[in-house]
Amino acid sequence: MDNLGELLHGFTIALTMPHLLLMAVGVLLGILVGVLPGLGAPNGVSLLLPLTFGMQPVSAIILLSSMYWGALFGGSVTSILFNIPGEPSSVATTFDGYPMARDGRPTTALATAFGSAAFGALIGVILITFLASWVAQVALAFGPPEYFAVYFLAFASFVGMGGAAPIKTVVALAIGFAIAAIGIDTVSGSVRLTMGIDELVKGVNFVVAVMGLFGIGELLVAVEEELHARAVSSRIDWGEVFRAVVRLPRHGVALLRSAAIGCWMGITPGGPTAASFMSYGIARRFSRRGRYFGTGGGRRHHLA
């Protein structure tokens, strides 16, 4: 119960006017950074680090953590409206969010993404508060075999639950591994798969790969079907936001399940990317409306 007391004491400090203002500023800045493809939450936080030099430590941490959350949400905005994920952990959001937006329900998709992310965050905070010391021990016990197991689970669930032919998914995954292996091997330090091209020594940047695969691919599809602006316009209808949030509890089981996966994957250092893919895969498997997934029936959220 010590932890709870500490948490409540934390709230009394955080819920003061200047700090609330700082949170608002931080979240807005975070969304701004998160929307830009390639500037994910960690980059955004390090970019804005100089802003906090003149601040009290408590205010600085509040600003930076609001920034971090804002950037995570910002990443889902581009995923849903443009089908270009702003950062790795929002890739899974494109699967349903973008089709929903294209069907004329961008507001619903955005509100659902934000609502479920907020729910996941809440669960995460509560869980961490009660289990912090225990969780820290588990995380410290994580070694290479455990990392391998977590990622293997994530990739295996992706193959088993993806919509496409499994062998094609396996080939695509293996191509991804091969591309990720280009450059300097982190274990031995030797340079591999560069074919003698100096530029490849540093490896292939994640942002470059994502822009090519999602961005250019989306452009080519748009041109093929002669649709001009495929970026979905997003006039926000507040009634729709409210309705989407009200509808969230109906997906309660999926939310709780995803929250559980998110917390588990957040404790284990698998990271938010693996967690979001896992939640998606599991939700797909358990949903009775499973076959509508990927065409815009879904929901998920991020948590780490």
Binding site: V171, A174, F177, A178, A181
Partner: peptide, 8 residues
């Protein structure tokens, strides 16, 4: 990379 190549 060899193993991934074989899988591909």
């Amino acid at each position: 990379p060899f193993l991934t190549g074989v899988i591909i």
